[in-house]
Structures are given as C-alpha cells and as structure tokens.
Simulated scan of single mutants.
Amino acid sequence: MSEPTAPAPAAAAPLLTLSGVHTHIGQYHILQGVDLQVPRGGLAVLLGRNGAGKTTLLRTIMGLWQASAGSVKFDGREIGKLATPDIAQAGIAYVPESMAVFSELTVRENMLLAARNGPLDEARVEWIFGFFPALKKFWHYPAGNLSGGQKQMVAIARAIAEPRKLLLVDEPTKGLAPAIIQSLIAAFRELKETDTTILLVEQNFSFVKSLGDTVAVMDDGRIVHAGAMRDLVDNQDLQQRLLGLSLDSHQ
C-alpha cells in the first residue's frame, strides 16, 4: 500500500485584489470592470498604452478617486470606500508620475513629513542614501531646486521613509537619465527582498524586463492579460497581440 501523498501547500492569498472595479471621472467611464490580483511579495508590472486606465487604477486603489462599483481588498480587508489617509495608514504608499514634492521645503523636511509614526529612522535614511546618494548631498536644499530626476528620488524616498506593505509607483523612469534609472533598479531590487510588494506602471520595457515578476496588461479600462513577466518577455507574438510591439525593439 502506497504512502499517502502530502497535500500541496496552499498558495499565499494575494495582497491586493480588485474585482469588477468601475471608476467614473465626471461623464467618463474609465475603469470598466477591472479584475486584478497582485501577489504578496515581489514586483508586479502594469502595462498598457496611454489612456488605457493605468493611472486611474492606481489612484482608485489609493482612494484618490472612488470606485463607482466593485471591490478593492488589501491584505484581506475591503478598502474601496476608505479615505486616502486611512488607506495610507493601512500600509500603502503612492508615488505619482508628477513627482509630487514640497518645493519650498528641504529634502530633509520632505522626508520628515513622510514619517507618520514619529522621527525619521536614521538607519533607514542611510539605507535610502545608499540608493540615492544625491539626496545626502542635497539634504538641506529646497526640493524645488533639484532636477527632475532628483525630485523623483525624493518622491520615492518619501514613499519608503517607513516600511510599507504595498508601494504603488507610476512611471518612475519617465524622462530620467540612464544613471538614475540604474539607481532605481537597485532600489526596487532591494525593496523586493523586504516585505514590500510593488505595483509598478512603466513604459520602459528594458526596466520592467529586469524587475517584473508578474505582469498585467490594460486596454480600454480592463485587464486583458495577466501572468508571469517571463512568459510575456519570451513570447513576441503575445507582445505583438497585446501591446502592438516587441519588447526587444524598445531597449
């Protein structure tokens, strides 16, 4: 008689689940029934052409725009009707494409405002300086005097000033020099090794190929594909069908 087979371990529940999410902005119906799961741990990439609804999806998760229908669950809790500060308190941080910083405040003061639970953790600040040494150099400079790339560093540093469960990042490499992009890659790779899950909207395909664990593709307000990043990178026919291009042609 054969030994009984041990049951396979259950897959970890997704950290974030969107089910049938619709978002209207004025008269415009932007998200049209989005279903998306973001696995716990690692980095998930959201692709799609301009106007597909990617930024609206991030802003809906963050509560900046309210879903008109559907469910948004984070770590097993429904957050679709919560206010943005409550969503942030639950452990989600958002880095918008606009590189939102307080221009009149110094880099240090921008970071102090991001520390919700007391003074800045000096060890964590030094860890952040390891990715973005320019921030140490400009620590006492007004953030408004920095370059676009340096402001992007401040925006990301603010989002990770304290440990977060989920980091939402919108087009972080847009307009950045290659050297700064390499710093971002190093930062995201190390964040992936912590307890931080990342959902990244990005159009720099070389960047996402090197980082993404999973990928979802949006079109006309819906998710039209979801799976492993490796499967999309290895399948040029699928790239062409979903995105109208080959990732290899966009380095």
Rank of each mutant, 00 (worst) to 15 (best):
E3R: 14
P7N: 14
A8V: 07
A12H: 04
L18G: 04
S19I: 08
T23L: 05
I25M: 06
G26D: 00
Q27C: 05
Y28P: 00
G33N: 00
L36R: 00
P39G: 02
G41P: 03
G42Q: 06
L43R: 08
A44Q: 10
R49D: 14
G51K: 03
R59L: 09
M62G: 01
G63H: 06
W65H: 15
S68R: 00
K73Y: 00
F74V: 04
F74W: 01
F74G: 07
D75A: 14
G76Q: 05
R77T: 15
E78R: 02
E78V: 02
G80W: 01
G80T: 00
D86I: 06
I87S: 11
A88G: 04
I92M: 00
Y94A: 10
E97V: 00
S98Q: 10
M99Q: 15
A100P: 09
S103R: 03
S103T: 07
E104Q: 15
E109R: 13
N110H: 02
L113P: 07
N117P: 07
P119N: 01
L120R: 08
D121S: 15
E122L: 13
A123H: 09
A123S: 14
F131L: 10
P133Y: 10
L135G: 06
K136L: 07
K136S: 14
H140D: 15
H140R: 14
P142S: 10
P142H: 12
P142K: 08
A143Y: 02
G144F: 13
G148T: 11
Q152F: 01
A157N: 09
A159W: 08
I160W: 09
R164M: 15
L166D: 04
G175D: 10
I181Q: 02
S183A: 12
A187N: 08
F188S: 10
E190G: 12
L191T: 06
K192A: 12
I198R: 03
V201S: 04
S206W: 10
G212P: 13
D213N: 13
T214S: 15
V217M: 05
M218R: 11
M218N: 08
G221S: 13
A228M: 13
R230K: 15
D231P: 10
L232V: 06
D234Y: 04
Q236R: 14
D237F: 05
Q239E: 13
Q240S: 09
L242D: 01
G244W: 09
L247Y: 10
Q251K: 15
